[in-house]
Design a protein around this nucleic acid. Structure first.
Lengths: 190, 190
DNA sequence: TAGGCCATGTAACCGGTTACATGATTAG
DNA sequence: CTAATCATGTAACCGGTTACATGGCCTA
């Protein structure tokens, strides 16, 4: 999912400045598509404007740079529809946690425990976040997407809570801790 | 998750050539971490070897380039543990499908239907794949990870099957296909 | 008074992909 | 006869991040 499509989709949801687009893509309901930085958003917006897919109006502000408020044009909406109409690329799930799990046998138990706790915390935060969005929107499509996400994450958290002992046990069984390998030996190279 | 860590993790699971590492990271149980191409794997392996984190032995073959079989060293294992011991970065979920769902109101029904079908197909394939891995491994950590994934994907597929009508309906209600798109309703809740 | 929020933008860098180059063997 | 599989590697490219530059206002 390119920053380009992301910007068009957000702008379809309503006018916004580059600054606001970044917030929405990092914190808001659009964060499941690509997280954008200023360094990618501002140039993209400029290009989109040059192509006539968005327009902007400026709002002067004392002291700060003028707010550039972007709106999607009809051509922009068409471009968005065209991009969304292609069969969506398969979803991507990248999990550092899963790698820890698969390599559990190699790790001390406390590392696995910390990873499980962190993941459980992330899931809880994410669920709370989605519930908040779902509760404050009128858009049925957004609510549908939130419910979908909540359903998946609840299952994930439930599985983790119910099965964490098993993976922690696998970590526990490795020759670890007790061995005289105190962190020092780890950082010798480089 | 860098290619570097991925290579180390795969090599911890057993010796492999660059070619095999690629297959494992695209098709095998390691595909949830990063998908690597030859252009990234071969240079990474060379660097790892220069740093002493892996060793290689060559196997001559008639006609083909010699197989370079890499093995992780004790230093490599330590580097891997060090990297895994840092609190894992939060999981990443990027869904083109979800963007289609959120923008459903903009799209003709058949596009949403096709997207749902494709996703359901992907989920079924993925579940089948994980079941196969789970059934053919002796490693309890791998089995645990597979069960986790299967549990999550089953929920996902179940939700989709049960709720697809709702999102397809939202698409259906839009002025679709040939209609000369009137100015969109200026509804912007976020 | 330090730090975070608002608000824009540029430039250097980098990790990774794509396309290329080579070529024998096997399956359809 | 074609396409895929095996098997290595390089070079150009590119999308995106990080760090930088600027600066006023508000809160702890």
């Amino acid at each position: 999912m390119s920053i380009r499509t992301l910007c068009l989709a957000i702008l379809h949801g309503g006018d916004a400045t580059g600054y606001e687009i970044k917030k929405l893509s990092v914190e808001g309901k659009y964060r499941y598509f690509a997280d954008a930085s200023f360094g990618s958003i501002y140039p993209t917006l400029a290009r989109l404007e040059a192509e006539g897919l968005v327009t902007l109006r400026e709002e002067q502000q004392a002291g700060k740079p003028a707010r550039k408020i972007y709106s999607i044009t009809e051509a922009g909406r068409q471009a968005l529809v065209a991009e969304l109409s292609e069969l969506p690329a398969p979803d991507i799930f990248r999990s550092a946690f899963m790698l820890v799990a698969i390599c559990a046998e190699l790790l001390p138990k406390r590392v696995v425990t910390a990873a499980v706790d962190a993941r459980l915390g992330n899931l809880a935060a994410e669920i709370g976040h989605l519930e908040e969005i779902a509760g404050s929107t009128n858009d049925p499509a957004t609510r549908w997407a939130c419910e979908y996400g909540i359903s998946c994450m609840r299952t994930s958290a439930t599985f983790l809570a119910a099965n964490r002992a098993r993976i922690e046990e696998i970590a526990g069984t490795s020759r670890d801790e007790a061995a005289p390998t105190p962190a020092a030996t780890l950082e010798m190279d480089r």
